[in-house]
Each structure stands twice: as C-alpha cells, then as structure tokens.
Amino acid sequence: MRWALDSEQKMFADALAGWLDDAAPPEAVRTWLDSADPSSFEAQLAEDGWLAIGLDEDAGGQGGGLLELALVAERLARHAAPSSAWLATVLALPALAGSSAADSVLDESAFAALAVESDRFVDAPARFARSEPGLRGRVEIALGADRARWLVVPVSGDEGAELWLVDAASPGVIVTPTALLDRSRSAAAVELLGAEGERLDVDADAVLRAAALRAAVLVAADSLGAATRMRELAVDYSKQRTQYGQLIGAFQAMKHAAATMLVDEEASRSIVFYSAATVEAGDEESPLHAAVAKAQVTAAGVRTADSSLAMHGAIGYTWEHDLQLLYKRAMLDAPLFGNPALWNERLAGSLDLEPIPVAGVDLNGQSIDIVEPKSIAAKH
C-alpha cells in the first residue's frame, strides 16, 4: 500500500517546509548546535504556533492530529533542526490536559518533558516512588528534560502507576544535562530528592501507553525525514564527484545503493503515515502498526545512513558536511524510546501465535514445535 497525503495535508507540509527554510537554514542550525543553545529557535517554533499543532482548538491548540505531528517531525529532521523540546512537550501534553501547566506551555513556551528513560519504552515501569516528604527516584537520560519547565513524572503508587507534575526549578529536583553524539537533540538525568508535586487526575497507565505509541510513530517520522535528506545529499554528490574519468553516479553500485535507499524511503513513508492515522483513530491494531513503524523505519534509517556515508566517501565524515548531522540523527532514532529489536519483540508478543506439533520433526534428538501466526494467516 502506498500512502498519499490529502490536499490539506500537502498544504500543511508545504507551509511547514517554507517556514523551516526561513527559520532554520543550515548556517543557523549549525550556530545553534555549536553553541548548544537552540532557545531562539524553540521560542520561534512556539511563537509561530507550531507547538500547538495536534491540540484541539478548544484547548488553545491549532487542531490536527498525530499525522500532522508526524509531518512536523519529518520536516524538523530534514533540516537537522533542534527538536527535543518540541517532541518532549508533544508527548507530555496529553497528561497535562486541564492543568495550568498546559496553558503555560502554549502561552509562555514553558516546555514539558516526561521523566522516563529515553532508551526504553515510555510505558516501562516507573523509576520514581512516593516517600516522605515527596517524590524520589532517578532516570539517567530523559529526552528534552534539560529544556523543560515542567516534568511529568511516572510514579509507582499503591494502586498502580500515577503521574505527577513537578516544576523543574523546585527544591529537590536535580536536572543534569547529558551530552549526546547527536547535537540536534538533548537530554538530561533527572533526580528527585523529596521533591513536591501535583498528582495529575488522569489514567496514568492509559496515558503512558498512548504516549509510547505516539513516541514510536514520531521517532519513526524523524528517521524518515533524516533518511530522505541523506538520500538527496548522496544522489546530488554522485552527480558531482568524478572517479576514473566519469561521474560516480554512473557506476552500477551507486545506482543500486540509491535505488535501495529510495525503496526503503517510500515504504517507510507509507508505514509512518498509516500508523499515525490508525493510532490517532484508536484502531485496535494500532499498537502493531506503531511497533512496525518504530522497528522497521528506524532500522531502514540506519541502513540509509550507512549507504549515504559510503556514497560520499571520506567527505561524509567531515565536520563541515551536513551529512554528519543527519547520520547522527538517524543513529539516535534507532534506540530512542526502544530499539528495533525491542519493538520487534513487542510486535511478536502481540500476535496470536499457537505452537503446532509436526510429526517426525527432530532437532538434535529432540522433537520441536513449529509456530504459525494463525491470526495473520487468517486475515491475509
């Protein structure tokens, strides 16, 4: 299946691309990354309304849903633009519905972040607990926590998971920035030492499950954007670089590499936008679609990164070339909020599999069972 955007979605994507061309040209992006201070871009992103995409207009948002957010993620990645504050806030906002913090996010650009380990599933068991006089615990790498005014903290309560709102500037909160190889994103260790907070009146388990699926889709969209730009850079370079008296783009190996990247890109595009649509709609199979997106698209992004680097040769390793920014971005997308292997395990665990004994099959003197995905076979 090939996914196609409708006319309104195309207009939205074009408008965003034009805005980013003006707001995040390559020289400006490099300045932000070199200084480790993307605050001017983050402020403009919020001021111009892009932070409000995906929120209902009744709640002060601009409307749209997860598919529009995926378009934002893809375009931010194409420009290698700083995106930690944006992504962290998008994932945290559903937990803040109806709270004063949600208003400050939109009105004052006070970013929010989930205090979860960013190399694990968002809905993994909480690392924080209630104690006297407040909350205690620590996570080592929380995406966007260094940019956040508000922390949404999952807490292990007596009757299950709870979500607490904590002001990052309050006593008992220690936020220590963590350096990442990908300078277009940032993270921090978060430690709570008796910090006070406000318990949010939400179904914590449901919010975290939804956030895990949204994270999977949006990180996959980011990987798609980075891969698209890397493929464009590689093809453009193959039309400029000569070897043995001809352009390297004329060599069959280069053509095959470029074609493989394009096939991965088009497949990834359909996966990302279809999964965004089904997760937004609450489709019963949306967890499968989100898992496929995170596992397959980010793995394809890593392949494209390696192929693009090979097509560029030594110049692709240099600090001055934009490829290194995108390469690092794709490499971070793979483990961010769960690596492809973990999402493939979650995907396999959600399938209706039954062991089917097969007579006469033997392995090293032991009988074995062959497993068939019966539900998939029945549907397809």
Rank of each mutant, 00 (worst) to 15 (best):
D58G: 02
D58M: 13
G60H: 09
G61V: 05
Q62L: 09
Q62D: 06
G63L: 04
G65C: 12
G65R: 07
L66P: 11
L67N: 07
L67Y: 15
L71P: 08
V72E: 11
E74C: 03
A77K: 10
H79K: 15
A80W: 02
A81V: 02
S84V: 04
S84D: 04
A88Q: 08
T89Q: 07
T89N: 06
L91C: 08
L93C: 07
A95K: 12
L96N: 02
A97G: 03
G98S: 08
S99T: 15
S99R: 02
A101F: 12
A102I: 00
D107K: 14
S109E: 02
A110L: 11
A110N: 04
A110W: 04
L114M: 09
V116S: 10
E117H: 06
E117S: 08
S118T: 05
D119W: 11
F121P: 06
F121N: 05
F121R: 15
D123A: 15
P125M: 09
R127S: 14
R127D: 14
F128N: 01
G134A: 09
L135V: 08
R136G: 04
R138E: 06
R138K: 14
V139M: 13
I141A: 03
I141C: 08
A142T: 01
A142M: 14
L143C: 08
D146L: 05
R147W: 04
R147K: 10
V153F: 15
V153I: 11
V153R: 12
D158F: 00
G160S: 06
E162H: 15
W164M: 11
W164A: 08
L165I: 06
V166S: 10
V166I: 13
V166K: 11
D167Y: 11
A168K: 14
A168F: 05
V173A: 09
I174Y: 11
V175F: 01
T176D: 15
P177M: 12
T178Y: 01
A179S: 03
A179W: 14
L180F: 10
L181I: 00
S184L: 00
R185G: 00
V190P: 14
E191G: 00
G194S: 12
G194W: 02
G197A: 09
R199S: 07
R199D: 02
L200M: 12
L200V: 10
V202E: 06
V202K: 02
D203S: 13
A204G: 00
A204I: 09
A204R: 00
